[in-house]
Amino acid sequence: MTLVIAAFLLWAAAWWLNVRIANGPGSQTQAAKLGVSAIFGLTLLVMWELIVRGLGVPLVILPPPTMIAERFAGSLPILWADFVQTVVKGALSGYVIGCLAAFGTAILVDRSDFLRRGLMPVGNFVAALPIVGTAPILVMWYGFDWQSKAAVVVVMVFFPMLVNITAGLQETTQMQRDQMKTWAASYWQGLWKLRLPAAMPFVFNGLKISSTLALIGAIVAEFFGSPIVGMGFRISTSVGQLALDMVWAEIVVAAIAGSAFYGVVAFIERKVTFWHPSQRGQ
């Protein structure tokens, strides 16, 4: 019981500290922003640990963070193999194929007014559907290995990418396009020098949405059948064995992979679209 009380005392102290920093003089600095969110996150972790230990919560319901960290450190080879199978082979290859396919389709749609009026409403519609549901079909077609996961990811990222790239290619004004015409630029020159750069903020928006979708697709597809390696496989079998520390370790891997994936895309975005207002002045 003392541990639980300690947890709430810690919460009060950390919150008081955060309020002081947030309303203090230096609250606009980068250090204060990082510090406040870090204190909040750490407090939650420590409270989790204290409450789970204090109330004696059974391990099959919620293991404490230290135990998850221990399991994480103790099974690095397994986690790494799962990571390679699910993220590198399944999600990344599907992501690349899906984005390239969407890019090619977007160029076609861009060149033909008929396709834009016909395909885009369909694309918008499909982008809102629960495409994860195609996983059982694709697993049946392409087998249990990573190819079927990549296929699910392709289908999942294709439509959001298509919608975003097409919207981005509409971004230029009539005057800018006329200017290119005045310079006797061909379609491809106009695309390469004017419209693609202008489309980049939209393209990266799509790439960032798709990075999360790709991981979700690859993990969920493994629930429908997989070889005996992979994050989705490990999660569903460990849940069956009530080895919740392993499940949490996989979730830590998924969280790291997800934020790293997103971070890399966001970093490239900052380098490529440095001219855009949303990227300046920070």
Binding site: V60, I61, L62, S211, T212, L215, I216, I219, V220, F223, M231, G232, I235, S236, V239, G240, L242, L244, V247, W248, E250, I251, A254, A255, G258, S259, F261, Y262, G263
Partner: peptide, 17 residues
């Protein structure tokens, strides 16, 4: 940015238990 859906199986089983 995190594939939250990955924890779905665990929530189901834990609440079930």
């Amino acid at each position: 940015t995190i594939p939250i859906l990955a924890i779905a199986p665990m929530i189901i089983v834990v609440l079930n238990s």
